[in-house]
Nucleic acid binder design. Sequence first.
DNA 1: ACTATCGATTGATATATGTCAATCGATGGC
DNA 2: GCCATCGATTGACATATATCAATCGATAGT
Lengths: 263, 263
Amino acid sequence: MVFDCFLVDYTENELFNEYYTAMKQRRIEEACVKCKDRCCARCFDDGEDSIFDCLTKEELELLVKEKRHIHFKAGETILKQNTAASHVVCIKQGLAKIIAEGDGDKKLILRLVTNHSILTGGGVFIEEIRHFTVQAVTEVDCCFIDSDKIYELVSKNSRFAFELLKLNNKQNIQMLNNLVGITQKYMPGRVSDLLLYLKNEIFRSNPFDTRLSRQELADMTSMTMESFIRILKEFKSAGIITVDGSNIHVLDEDALNLISKKG
Amino acid sequence: MVFDCFLVDYTENELFNEYYTAMKQRRIEEACVKCKDRCCARCFDDGEDSIFDCLTKEELELLVKEKRHIHFKAGETILKQNTAASHVVCIKQGLAKIIAEGDGDKKLILRLVTNHSILTGGGVFIEEIRHFTVQAVTEVDCCFIDSDKIYELVSKNSRFAFELLKLNNKQNIQMLNNLVGITQKYMPGRVSDLLLYLKNEIFRSNPFDTRLSRQELADMTSMTMESFIRILKEFKSAGIITVDGSNIHVLDEDALNLISKKG
DNA sequence: ACTATCGATTGATATATGTCAATCGATGGC
DNA sequence: GCCATCGATTGACATATATCAATCGATAGT
């Protein structure tokens, strides 16, 4: 796949451009025109934390001029662990998973990212090496912003720096909670946490379609697919949830909260 | 203990001062005088990353003027989870453990901090709530710096902001590695990782005295004390290490590396 | 010196979770 | 319509790790 080699070496501009032109440029440009005036700020103005809100028109211009709007098909790798962290990626639309790849085939899905997520952290500010892989679950529209531009903005605009610090901190805390949950809870508790996370933080609707396989869901809780399925079955039998394929309906959120607390 | 109530409410200056004066002020001032000229910068000029290096004389002055130099005895709580995160703490000397407290008595020791560590993260830039507890293992000398001062410096000095971002990022990556290790490795692998961490990153000497109980060491690997002891015993039998109380001598680092890789 | 105490150690046992293999059901070609 | 394929599910079994209880050794107090 052309794309993979682009990823590994995307510091080389030739490959980047080759890929870029290959991706039906017209559609991309059309998408970009729509938001040309405030672009990146516009992507994040629906109540979410927007770290770009604080930028001036000129600063935004700097971002917009150099950014690359790229479209990924489901399953494609957006960022690959251990490659150079030369860009910050903003997800405009779609669902992607953040994966920490261990030795062997071991994977741990750290979290999901949807519309308006900013993928910094994991080595953008130091080492310049990515510490996780990001893979598209659905089709994903996103922008690649050169890290240098981000650095430039950090030095020009202290509020922006502050927003970045906040973002980083937030991710830090989320990971900490994850760590504590995974290490201290039994499987039912972890599954409860996952379901609540999906319902309340990712999909924000009640019957929600995860678009994720059982294996992927299991990888989010650090358990085997088989074990995950068994717990899910128990929850079904207990009338706590309803499952139809990748579609999950939470019937008794209180029960999930209780199970989450207890273990 | 006077100190605990101080911690819970240390936004109240009365309590802060009460504690401060109670703590043999003379010794503290003496320690501060020694480094008055560049103080915080001086604390971090031995080759370690120093986020204070980039500050101007005036900016340093701002820090020095308001900081509180505080001494803790072994076992005392330096910062308490769920209290207000109104200060950034710099460890000048000593050893402390960072603990994530879960429900029940469950604890997870995230990492150790020694000379020249800066305790930001975990809610300093958002929420203003600490997400972990920090407890002194040995005697600890440290400085409390008002978070507001840090914010002020971030807005004045972009290099400082950048350094903070790097620091945050580093912690993030460390936690990620921790998460992957704990979830994907068997106990021998985790113990190996711990021993290597202690030897190479914390104590930086070979026979090293952890000053930590078996329970605490176990809490760093997310396993039971009994299990930890058994693994340690195996390592001893295999001639990989030598143990005498809290003193550990690594004889075969290659073996540890191998065990760490394999699982 | 005697006892109480506390952390370290060891052993026996229980259990949560993983592993392996088989089946089932749906989907997609031919 | 039949077969191949792949994810989901289920069951039997293995095992890594936790739990519980007892012992040991050192330290401290009386």
